[in-house]
Design a protein around this nucleic acid. Structure first.
Length: 556
RNA sequence: UGGGGCGUGGUGCAAGGGCAGCACACCAGCCUUUGGAGCUGUGGAUCUUGGUUCGAAUCCAGGCGCCCCAGCCA
């Protein structure tokens, strides 16, 4: 974090500072409240960083608390994966807790509310509860069970807890106001009965489980949370979250809501992401096209770049969709400074240098990173036959095309100036071989006579080339906002979101290990995939380089 | 037609009564042994109407638009 960026602060930081100033709170403690029912995605990172940084900036504490109030959805696998991803981001917490740690105390608090006549057991069916809730414009109807005696409620609640009643037969409800204009205040459900499956932490001990609306705020209270930061959708619930601790006479955190992160060309809801996995649109949760952290990691994004993006999108209450190209810019920005440069040809075209000695090989010096002299140099082998990119040759060049074409001279990076003389075609008329002559006086790439060439292209020596698999990723969707409109989001999938190529690379790349990041010159940043074999590395396209020529071509 | 929230260039975020600014994107140019990176420059925004004020993106009132809420999900 640079110092100049904090010239203006967001409304949450402002509110926290004010609370400290006025003495509403004497310390800051926040919490991360993930539900362990899926993997973290980029949207979670925003929420996580708000909680983490606000605690850190105020010398406060962050608690990682898993919201495991629904055994039908949650699994231990996700508890581990979420912590792993959060650590990757560099987030630090003082302790890990679970909503389930507090089931006992929370039950006691519910009993207190019953005793005060503020909660009751309702025997209505789920359908009746729903039908009697009223509508947005009409008040609800009070349950016929709403005015049971405290004794009866206590007895029934106890028996619910003991598992005497089947799922769905009864619930515990707060007794607030069935005519309240805010639907969340119309006697919200606090406990429901769930016998199966067993809870991932408490096993079969509990037969009733608290609803999020009942558990969450009370857990915050129990942990002495000062600022309960969450997304806009909970704004409507805030009156309820304030009502409970008020009646109980316990610690009241301050809830502040912000707009969640959305991104162009992707979907963010767990439900939709799960569909992509289950319908095999992608190859799992860590498919590099997914917006999950596991996918971004595999794709080669750095935590620094992800965090920079989150910092740059800011915090506000406006509904917004951030541009994925900003994320990509952050990734390029970071990788430009640190990625070692390598030469790799993704779609090879054979080039024969006719006047180069048949069996000669030379070693050329190449810099590893022009942005970082300390990265040093390496040797690259050169010989009579090299591969270049198919895109770097045109038999008949369009306007402004500076690369190889008959009669034109270009530089083979770090090697020689070469001039195209003629081509060889196959039966179908496709160019299969480009013939050139080289100028021996231009070794390294500079001409003694001072003549310039418009273009420098990358290459790989045919006799030294190592095969590589390259997975070229593009956006998963063709629409900026796949969720917009009537159509199913799955209908705007980009059919070309993955293209697998077999290319070749300078020999040093065959030693790449999973997770190694490189810039393939003139093409993009790539990250070695865990699928790599010793003899055949596999690379994922992290993000392409900006391509001025592609832009010119596209405009045509 | 209930309640809650939000409206600033294409996108995201600033400006808290005093010259509407930053980033990404876009466009043009310079430079370049990556058509990368870097550098320079251009264009483009306060939802609307009225009020208060010397002065309003900012304060007030009305209108319009968008988002959220009727799970025994979170």
């Amino acid at each position: 974090m640079s110092p100049e960026e904090s010239k203006t602060i967001d409304f949450i930081r402002e509110a926290v500072a004010e609370d400290l100033r006025t003495g509403r709170f004497s310390y800051v403690r926040t919490r991360l409240p993930p539900e362990p029912n899926g993997y973290l995605h980029i949207g979670h990172v925003k929420a996580f960083m708000i909680d983490y940084l606000i605690a850190k900036e105020n010398n406060g504490e962050l608690i990682l608390r898993f919201d495991d109030t629904n055994p039908t959805k949650e699994e231990t696998e996700f508890v581990d994966a979420i912590q792993d991803d959060a650590r990757w981001l560099g987030i630090q917490w003082v302790k890990v807790t679970y909503a389930s740690d507090y089931f006992g105390l929370l039950y006691d608090w519910a009993v207190q509310l019953v005793k005060k006549g503020l909660a009751y057991v309702d025997d209505q069916s789920p359908e009746e509860v729903s039908a009697n809730r009223g509508t947005l414009t009409e008040p609800g109807k009070e349950s016929p069970y709403r005015n049971r005696s405290v004794e009866e409620n206590l007895d029934l609640l106890e028996r619910m807890k003991n598992g005497e009643f089947p799922d769905g037969s009864r619930v515990l409800r707060a007794k607030i106001d069935m005519a309240h204009p805010n639907i969340n205040m119309r006697d919200p459900v606090m406990y429901r009965i769930i016998h199966e499956p067993p809870h991932h932490r408490t096993g079969s001990k509990w037969k009733i489980y608290p609803m999020y609306d009942w558990a969450h705020g009370q857990n915050d209270s129990m942990e002495g949370i000062t600022h309960s930061l969450c997304s806009l959708e909970y704004e409507n619930h805030r009156p309820l979250y304030e009502w409970f601790p008020e009646q109980l006479g316990v610690w009241k955190p301050r809830q502040i809501e912000f707009a969640r992160l959305n991104m162009t060309y992707t979907v963010m809801s767990k439900r939709k992401l799960r569909r992509l996995v289950e319908e095999k649109v992608v190859n799992g949760w860590d498919d590099p096209r997914m917006p999950t952290l596991r996918a971004m990691r595999r794709r080669g994004y750095t935590p620094e770049a992800v965090l920079d993006f989150i910092r740059r999108v800011g915090v506000a209450k406006n509904y917004s969709i951030s541009d994925v190209s900003l994320l990509e810019a952050c990734v390029r920005d970071d990788l430009n400074k640190r990625a070692l440069r390598r030469m790799a040809v993704l779609r090879p075209l054979k080039v024969v240098i006719d006047n180069y000695p048949d069996n000669q090989t030379e070693e050329m010096d190449a810099v590893n990173n022009p942005e970082d002299p300390s990265a040093g140099t390496r040797k690259i082998q050169f010989s009579k036959i090299v591969y270049i990119e198919q895109d770097d040759f045109r038999e008949t060049p369009p306007p402004k095309y500076y690369r190889l074409f008959p009669g034109n001279e270009v530089r083979l990076r770090y090697a020689y100036l070469v001039k195209c003389t003629h081509v060889v075609k196959n039966d179908k008329g496709e160019v299969v071989e480009v013939h050139c002559t080289y100028d021996p006086a231009t070794r390294g790439g500079d001409a003694p006579d001072g003549r310039k060439v418009k273009s420098t292209i990358h290459w790989v020596s045919a006799t030294h080339a190592k095969p590589i698999e390259v997975r070229m990723y593009d956006r998963l969707f063709t629409k900026e906002n796949p969720e917009e409109g009537e159509n199913d989001f799955i209908e705007c999938l980009n059919p070309k979101s993955l293209e697998v190529l077999t290319g070749c690379a300078e020999s040093i790349l065959s030693a790449a290990k999973a997770g190694d990041r490189f810039q393939f010159e003139r093409q993009g940043y790539f990250c070695a995939d865990p699928d790599s074999a010793p003899d055949k590395p596999v690379f994922n396209l992290t993000v392409s380089l900006k391509d001025a020529w592609a832009k010119i071509e596209k405009k045509r």
